[in-house]
Design a protein around this nucleic acid. Structure first.
Lengths: 128, 128
DNA sequence: CTGCATCCGATCCGATACTG
DNA sequence: CAGTATCGGATCGGATGCAG
């Protein structure tokens, strides 16, 4: 799952070794996964998304949303009102992506202890 | 599933909206997923990994491996021989991560058409 | 309200060259 | 063989300010 140009190939030639096969799709960025989670519960406006994603700046949220739109995960609907209103919602593709994300979340939850332990070892805090 | 410092929290407070719950773990980088695939088939030496991952440079492969080691996904064994030999293998955590990755791969394969279509729309090639 | 423009530091990652 | 050192381009993403 890459955002760059090469991956996503559906290799079928059996290279004697690994690295053949589809690379799993991934949003290469920080916020797309969370946006997917938010939109899972229904259409949301720009400012509604900013609340649960409370540290995202509007610029980055816009970029994220635009990218997800390009990739076909969300659709954008602007209503011609004043003040302006824009709604984002998941496409069928976006909704379908929730399942594998749930699998990843389940795995993560299950292995949280190990995952967190690794971070302490690296982070470097040792004694007071 | 983040590499940065904040995610991986196991939120349990029910924020009224999304963005609560574990964020799925993810390697934030280009090569870790592929390395996981390669090591799935058994221990591999540094130079053996470079073959299927044929475009990776030694510097980047080293960084990737070191990061995966820190995170607890692979273990490194150096044999005191000449010429030197080093083997990398998956830890139990690393092996367990294959399952959700397979789920992601299956989803990707299933939706390849849509995923590829989005890339053309963006890439910009239009007419001959 | 929903953005876009600009600046700027942090990462990522490829190329190239060198070492124990 | 298994790396390390250095450089530079590309991207990410936060801060701030302005606009329709």
């Amino acid at each position: 799952m890459e955002t760059t140009r090469e991956p996503l190939r559906a290799d079928m030639f059996g290279h004697s070794d690994c690295a053949a096969g589809v690379q799993p799709f991934r949003f290469g960025d920080k916020w797309s996964g969370r946006v997917l989670r938010c939109l899972e519960q229904g259409p949301r406006r720009f400012s509604e998304l900013r609340i649960p994603l409370h540290t995202v700046t509007p610029k980055v949220l816009t970029e994220t949303l635009r990218a997800m739109e390009r990739k076909g995960f969300v659709s954008r609907t602007a209503y011609d009102e004043n003040p302006p209103r824009v709604e984002y919602r998941l496409t069928a593709l976006g909704r379908s992506a929730i399942e594998p994300m749930n699998a990843a979340c389940a795995w993560t939850a299950e292995h949280l202890p190990e995952l967190l332990a690794a971070r302490e070892g690296a982070g470097g805090a040792e004694g007071p």
